[in-house]
């Protein structure tokens, strides 16, 4: 029996970890990570994918920066997202979105 189970360990380990983390996130009473992701995704989609701003090495980097911004009280990501969308990739306007709704 043991000989049969050994080859299954890597599979068990990898798959179960992913399943457990997902269950864990879904089971949280305050799904803050998902909230941040939901708020940041449209902003980073616009800045990185739509506008292609060279400041961002990739979208993950943008999401990391956005997650930090989200942790600061003065930020309003919902209005930030609206502002960035209305900026239509104009970098002058995007900077002003940061001033108005970000942390700098």
């Amino acid at each position: 029996m043991a000989d049969v189970r050994v080859p299954q360990r890597p599979y068990f380990g990898v798959r179960s970890i992913f399943v457990s983390v997902l269950v864990g996130v879904a089971g949280c009473s305050e799904p803050v990570v998902d909230e941040v992701r939901e708020a940041c995704q449209p902003i980073c989609d616009e800045l990185v994918e739509a506008c292609g701003l060279a400041a961002f090495p990739d979208e993950d980097s943008c999401m990391g920066g956005c997650a930090y911004v989200a942790s600061q009280d003065e930020a309003d990501l919902d209005l930030y997202a609206i502002c960035v969308r209305q900026a239509e990739c104009d970098p002058f306007d995007i900077v002003e979105c940061e001033h108005a709704y970000g942390i700098d």
Partner: peptide, 27 residues
């Protein structure tokens, strides 16, 4: 181990991350 990871996943991870540090050479 899995319970520990699940518990960790419940933490608001954005509260413990730092500002991003982008190396200008990357862009």
């Amino acid at each position: 181990g899995l319970m520990t990871m699940a518990a960790a996943a419940c933490r608001p991870e954005y509260q413990v991350i730092s500002p991003v540090e982008v190396d200008p050479a990357e862009v």
